[in-house]
């Protein structure tokens, strides 16, 4: 009697009638196992198929900007430029989206009346419903050209900042990291906002009322109670956004113009991110060794996003522990 008890459950005794319980329990456990195993398989399969190509690679995988996988006998591929473009565009996106998301989340949770906040929040969520290929389309055809004067202005006046110096593609049309980063920032805005909104809303009412009762203005109340309370959630949400930006594929693929020379570490570069490089070559995945080069790039992206997401989780978990 009185054996260990699971969840909100009576313990299942293993005599005939409880077979239904056993079967159902196994089904649910099995499903969880599918998820756990598939993550492991993703890493494993990418690794297995990347290794032969990495062995056949004739240049340094991490430091070379070159990417030539056409000749199976002479594979030359390195991810330096992919890394640079991916990181630059994602960080630009994050730099724009983070303050905006914080402002929006505070606006929705602590300034608007609840009645209005709902439809307003819905508007932001609508952004998440727009598929990435449409963002790419709009970025390449509408926003890019519209941003061209801004890019030209920054390039002419701030060229001494390396990030705004001449890139490896022409400014015309806006097919550069600058445009891509801005589009990415719009795409990751909803997730950062949604997470921040959730934590800001959970600020204990007692703390808020305490601050207000001391004669704090609304902003002072936010600064002293809401922001400290929601900080880790906000950071975690931003990390999730960063993860999205790092892995975004088709929008970047459509927007960025391919470059003939290697990256100059400027916002006005073109080129490929990990994801867009893989997608661009997808129709030609036939030769295992050259496909393996792209799979190696995918593996790096996977590890990268895994790390960012795990970090987000860690930050969020610590915040939760502190709050309770």
């Amino acid at each position: 009697m009185a054996e260990e008890v699971t969840g909100s459950s009576p313990p299942a005794k293993s005599n005939g009638r409880r077979r239904g319980d056993g079967v159902f329990r196994s089904m649910t456990t099995g499903s969880s196992l599918v998820i756990v195993v598939s993550i492991g398989l993703i890493g494993l399969f990418l690794l297995i198929q990347a290794v032969p190509s990495l062995n056949a690679n004739n240049i340094n995988f991490f430091t070379s900007p070159e990417w030539a996988t056409g000749e199976v006998g002479n594979l030359r591929f390195g991810i330096r430029d992919l890394l640079v473009v991916t990181v630059l565009s994602s960080l630009l996106a994050l730099a724009i989206a983070m303050p905006l998301a914080m402002g929006i989340a505070l606006f929705l949770t602590h300034y608007l009346q609840p009645k209005l906040a709902r439809p307003f929040a819905y508007v932001i969520d609508l952004l998440a419903a727009v598929p990435s290929i449409v963002f790419g389309l709009w970025g390449a055809k509408v926003l890019g050209p519209a941003l061209e004067p801004v890019a030209t202005f920054l390039n002419e006046n701030l060229a001494w900042v390396p990030l705004f110096s001449d890139g490896n593609v022409s400014l015309s049309g806006g097919g550069n990291i600058f445009t891509a980063g801005i589009v990415l920032s719009i795409m990751i805005l909803p997730i950062i906002t949604a997470v921040s909104r959730e934590v800001f809303r959970q600020t204990p009412v007692m703390q808020i009322e305490g601050a207000l009762a001391l004669g704090a203005t609304r902003w002072e109340m936010i600064r002293t109670t809401v922001l400290p309370f929601g900080r880790s959630g906000y950071i975690a949400g931003s990390m999730l956004g960063l993860g999205r930006a790092l892995g975004e594929t088709v929008a970047v693929l459509i927007i960025l113009r391919s470059a003939t020379s290697s990256s100059t570490f400027s916002f006005f570069d073109g080129g490929y991110t990990f994801a867009s490089k893989i997608a661009s070559a997808a129709p030609e995945f036939s030769e295992p060794l050259s496909t393996g080069a792209y799979i190696a790039a995918g593996l790096v992206l996977f590890v990268f996003t895994f790390a960012v997401n795990a970090l987000a989780r860690y930050v969020a978990g610590r915040g939760k522990a502190k709050a309770s």
């Binding site: 999730l240 993860g243 999205r244 892995g247 594929t249 994801a275 893989i278 995918g298 997401n309 987000a312």
Partner: peptide, 8 residues
């Protein structure tokens, strides 16, 4: 898994 990029 929710953070795995679609291309991966």
């Amino acid at each position: 898994l929710s953070g795995v990029p679609s291309i991966v």
